[in-house]
Design a protein around this nucleic acid. Structure first.
Lengths: 239, 239
DNA sequence: CGATCGATTGAGCCCTCTCAAGAGAGGTGG
DNA sequence: CCACCTCTCTTGAGAGGGCTCAATCGATCG
């Protein structure tokens, strides 16, 4: 349990508006832990014992139905909080968190949350912002799922991923963590087969280059155009 | 602008943990307004001048794409807050709010939010809960849209609606505000045609009774069974 | 009482899913 | 270091759920 350097995290949204000594006080309650690639950090339905701040790596949040179908709720990037069940009055995690990379996260015991809140009301405000923008994201995704074809949804998903975690290359951008066809399918509400076909087609056109759990966008701009293209205006039933 | 009786709203989630005199102080900043049926309360993209608490009636929140397709984000019931753009750091409304009933809402100027927050940190905590449960809802809906057939999604949507705003009848439950096939289509990511066909079929079976903007669930339990039925396990690709 | 808005229903098609094999890449253990 | 095994990806064939297009009907309202 190494001490975390305050300066490394002080600029994160969670601590916006806090003084360094306050950040330090909050950090004192947390402990840091390594999560090797593909390990589970917490599981859906499990008692929400902690909440987290990702320091390094990437984490995948998934939600599963009783029958075993699952969707990928979001990828958590470095600097983001996750497992905030208690902040929204849940006693159990609503999703499963898995490290997709070797990752490091700070963990606070859930029981410290009320105390921290009382002492630092700004935490609630900052967390509200975070949750709020996730809600926005979520609505955007619903809008896409309702109104767009699979190909456009995949394009949007990839663009969002490179925006969040893209590594610029000489020519193009790479998603800098392992991601499978299945993952993309679960983000866009389709099947891995359809994603595979789409990526194969794009590869033919030189838009992407991809392999096992690896995707490079060679022509982000042309993919953007794809994502925008309205295949004939579906529901133009305005009121 | 009549004075609002504190006792009417003190029990709402927004004011959980507040003393009556505090509630009163907060209410003093708001003004009440009537919104006739089908009137727009605010429009997507518009400057977020106010946030609201619905005192009476029902409000529909919709989100529209540049090309005109829209989805129904949620129905707001009496006692719920809406238009919380500022709480999530937006300067413009991300959706349109329309009164589906003759409605009454309290409105606070957005500029009062920071001041209120400072004086009453509990507001942020309570709002966090609200936004959090909406995020949950949102994820559940995404899960449904990804994994279920249209018929099941419609069943779920109707059950959720009667749970939120159902009026119990001698035999069955009625959704107690005007709702069209198109509305249901926009909630479930389908077309009004498909919804119409589904409801017609259900009517044949005696599950529902419906007319122009009016739906009664005659056999909620059987509709629940429909909503649960797993049409052959789609994506049982677990990891 | 006409006009407008919501609902119904048919016909045909197509995008995407399902089912089915198989191939390649990586990891692992002997 | 090689053989094997597992996991990911690819691709074909076929089917079908739901969408699009189109027309009509009924109800509500001014």
């Amino acid at each position: 349990m190494a001490k975390v350097d305050t300066s490394l995290v002080a600029d994160l949204p969670l601590f916006a508006g806090f003084k360094p000594e306050e950040v330090e006080e909050i950090l004192r309650e947390a402990r840091s832990a390594r999560h090797p690639r593909n390990s589970t950090i917490f599981e859906q339905g499990q008692d929400a014992h902690s909440f987290f701040l990702l320091l390094h790596g990437h984490v995948r949040a998934t939600k599963t139905t009783p029958t075993g179908e699952q969707i990928l709720v979001r990828y958590i990037a470095t600097g983001e909080t996750f497992g905030l069940a208690m902040a929204i009055a849940l006693t159990h995690y609503p999703a499963t968190a898995t490290a997709v990379d070797d990752s490091v996260a700070l963990a606070w015991p859930t029981v410290t949350w009320p105390r921290l809140l009382e002492k630092f009301p700004g935490l609630a405000v900052n967390t509200l912002q975070t949750i709020g923008s996730r809600l926005q994201e979520s609505h955007t995704r619903m809008l896409e799922m309702s109104t767009q074809q699979v190909e456009q949804r995949v394009a949007h998903a990839l663009l969002r991923l490179v925006k969040q975690s893209g590594k610029k290359l000489g020519h193009g951008i790479e998603i800098d963590f392992p991601i499978s066809r299945q993952d993309i399918a679960q983000m866009t509400g389709t099947t891995l087969h359809t994603v595979s076909r789409i990526l194969s087609a794009w590869e033919q056109l030189g838009l992407v280059e991809s392999g096992r759990q690896r995707i490079i966008l060679r022509e982000p701009h042309r993919i953007f155009l794809l994502s925008e293209q309205n295949s004939g205006a579906a529901n133009i039933d305005r009121r």
